[in-house]
Design a binder for these strands. Structure first.
Lengths: 213, 213
DNA sequence: TTGTATCTGTGAAATAAATCACGGATATAT
DNA sequence: ATATATCCGTGATTTATTTCACAGATACAA
């Protein structure tokens, strides 16, 4: 399938909205509501959804349950995926126990760090290992996603090892920029860049909110 | 000034690259290097930089120091900005002490939480307050940026208070979607959406990496 | 029933963004 | 000196994305 990147981004956010609407037992949602929630226009939402081949109801909107199901199936967002976290500093350990991931279909099944000290000290029900064991564990547990929370200056090294070990996607929280082969899906979550993006828009303020993260 | 959103996003990332190049005492950097670092093409980088009115040197690239200076001045990324964090759970406290922010020009000058318990227990050199004091403190300290790290289901409420108190920009780490008036610069950093974006691209893999966070 | 206010779905038009392509420079090697 | 391989700057072109505009439905109110 060939979807615009922005559409993929929005659909992922829409999916999150649908989850919470479902929890609140809302039956229908309009393109306008979704647009407001994720910060875009109703036209765009309708285009996005129609690109995915899902259809709504005149005068009512989209069925929350079935839209969520369709989007989930098409983009395989309903599939459980295993992830690991490399770098068990404060951010890493916070993410290790971020209950939300599991409920959203991402299971953190391993943590890695090089400090024996940290490995011993950490209190969590998730297994933690030395980085040297990464290749084994990732293969053994069929981990698809790697989350990097090491401090800068060895993020690239960690990324290389994750890739060698076989992950298909990487989410990078470290401030260092990482280069990956093009078959690896990579997303940068550098906090400073995010704050700068906001600060820069104080100057060049346009109204759109999209920023394919 | 009127810059494409994607350009702003890229320039913020470029700025981060320039910082680390400067540290490593690199004098010049080519559009190609920058492109590789942030995941785009050299054409795009050159266009971005030329939109900002900065110019480079044939056969050498851009002067790291002066490019950084120019970008910083134009987008006011060189200006120190004050931020606060609302929600002092694990993520919130991790961010409170994220040394990197300060070195990048963002100073966290206050933390807020509703739990007296947490406020007492937290060990940090940054002042922490009850949420009820937000309006006062934000005005008093001239805080421009609010970082939301509360759990879902009262993120909107917190956002409303931040805005009432006078912040101009909000970075939201909570999984809840937030609606803000259009003069407020808002960026969503929902981790689940980010992981989903990666997972969805396992299916619809296009090569570009941009995702204006 | 009849009217009316919403909502979707979708081509067409308009915008925006990324690529291409190539001239002009100049560092580096020979 | 001369050739060559880079590298920037920038119109032109292409491609992508958003917005517009309106037909087709239908819930809801009077």
């Amino acid at each position: 399938m060939d979807l615009p990147n922005n559409t993929i981004d929005r659909v992922c956010r829409i999916f999150g909205c649908l989850e919470s609407l479902e929890e609140r037992q809302v039956d229908f949602v309009s393109s306008k509501d979704l647009a407001q929630a994720i910060g875009t226009t109703n036209d765009t939402i309708r285009k996005d959804i129609s690109l995915l081949g899902v259809t709504g109801y005149t005068r009512k909107g989209y069925s929350v349950v079935s839209l969520k199901k369709e989007l989930g199936q098409t983009l395989k967002l309903d599939k459980k995926r295993k992830a690991c976290i490399v770098g068990l500093g404060r951010l890493g350990t916070a993410l290790l126990d971020y209950e939300r991931f599991k409920q959203d279909g991402f299971e953190i099944v391993a943590g890695f760090d090089n400090s024996i000290n940290k490995l011993e000290r950490i209190k969590t029900h998730i297994d933690v290992f030395a980085i040297s064991e990464m290749e084994n564990i990732i293969a053994q547990k069929s981990i698809e996603l790697g989350i990097i929370t090491v401090p800068a200056n060895n993020a690239q090294e960690v990324a290389d090892e994750l890739i060698k070990a076989g992950v298909s996607g990487i989410l990078n929280f470290s401030p260092e920029k990482i280069v990956v082969p093009k078959e690896i899906i990579y997303l940068d979550m550098d906090f400073t860049s995010a704050l700068r993006f906001i600060a820069a828009r104080f100057i060049t303020n346009k109204l759109r909110k999209s920023r394919v993260a």
